[in-house]
């Protein structure tokens, strides 16, 4: 029988904390104050152009039919989007504004609605993950759920999660097989999953020349897809092969688009930018489990708040023998492995 769990609330409407504007705004990270003046000068710099196009758009929309009005509106949105700042240093108002522009642009382009959240980190939360290598059976339900939840490019078959079929007697990932496709679990093997470990000392964010990737106060390492210039230095810097690049325009069938999105999470990307696992930021900031943990049929995946002494993850850290990958690199992953 081994019952599968229902995927909850996927099609449910938003209420409560749904739109992401509930009262869980976090304190601004200290970096904001430092960078604020930068942002102001950028706004002054582009303010003139912005108002100019808005004016042009208004003129265009006043005279012509809806179609050209929509085209003008889209052009104006594109313009403002192109000259917007780095999400990391935006005020909450600016975050709201860009999210609304993106939602409107999606509506103009596709005729459907998406909800893009700009919810900030919940104070008092530091996300952590534990992966039970005695439990994982290599079914890869987590990979499938992740692809669907996070609107990953179907054309290139992008996946954030890798599951390695490991030979008994070694922990060397290179000796494992990340490309298996046969009946699992296979005798003489165990299974070990990797994804972004949301390092507490991430080597990837440090190297980004434009600050397009950073660690949020709740410990999630995020990418501002609109700010990334696509140099892929972060991809070279990641010791866990957790970052993915959009080598081409990503494609998700319209009816498969997960409409519950977050600016820093699963909103649709474009070609030439980096992306990565965000512990399903669009779900976890609402209190939900990440899609991988929810989909796992074996209970090998444990997710929770590291700052809560009563959380499951803390019990695992305290009572099981845990290890992390490449601890010698000092990256301090917030992703632990353990055994029964």
């Amino acid at each position: 029988m081994s019952a599968r769990l229902p995927i909850l609330g996927q099609e449910a409407p938003n209420h409560g904390c749904g739109s992401g504007t509930c009262g869980c705004s976090s304190e601004a990270p200290p970096v904001v104050e430092e960078r604020l003046d930068t942002d102001v000068s950028r706004r002054q710099f582009f303010g003139l152009f912005g108002s100019l196009t808005a004016g042009v758009a208004a003129v265009a929309s006043s005279g012509c039919g809806t179609k050209s009005a929509e085209a003008a509106e889209k052009a104006s949105l594109d313009w403002e989007e192109y000259f917007k700042g780095n999400y990391q240093v935006m005020t909450d108002e600016e975050k709201r504004a860009t999210v609304e522009r993106l939602e409107r642009r999606w509506e103009l382009e596709h005729g459907s609605r998406v909800e893009i959240s700009d919810q900030n980190a919940v104070p008092g939360v530091l996300y952590g993950y534990a992966f039970n290598i005695s439990k994982c059976q290599g079914y890869m339900d987590c990979v499938d759920a992740c692809v669907k939840e996070n609107n990953l490019d179907r054309e290139s078959g992008m996946q954030y999660i890798r599951i390695f079929e490991m030979d008994e007697g070694t922990m060397q990932l290179g000796d494992g097989d990340g490309r298996f496709y046969h009946e699992v679990p296979a005798a003489g093997h165990f299974y070990l999953g990797t994804q972004c470990f949301q390092c507490d000392n991430p080597p990837c964010t440090k190297v980004c020349p434009v600050g397009a990737t950073w660690k949020e106060p709740d410990g999630i390492v995020v990418v501002d897809y609109d700010w990334c210039i696509g140099c892929r230095y972060c991809q070279a810097a990641c010791p866990y092969w957790a970052r993915r690049f959009n080598w081409q325009e990503p494609f998700v069938p319209e009816d498969e688009v997960n409409q519950e999105q977050h600016y820093l999470g699963n909103r649709l990307r474009k070609k030439g930018v980096m992306e990565k696992c965000t512990y399903c930021i669009q779900r976890t900031r609402k209190g939900r489990n990440p899609a991988c943990a929810e989909a796992c049929p074996t209970g090998a995946r444990i997710f929770g708040n590291l700052l809560d002494p009563d959380s499951e993850i803390r019990w695992v850290l305290a009572n099981k023998k845990v290890f992390r990958l490449k601890e010698d690199l000092g990256t301090e992953p917030k992703f632990w492995y353990f055994m029964d």
Binding site: G9, C17, D310
Partner: peptide
């Protein structure tokens, strides 16, 4: 960091019960 920042107070996320419907 965990030892330093942890708090016995439960984090409240409003509306979280919705997902248990």
């Amino acid at each position: 960091r965990i030892d330093h920042e942890q708090s016995p107070d439960q984090v409240e996320i409003s509306g979280v019960e919705y997902w248990l419907d």
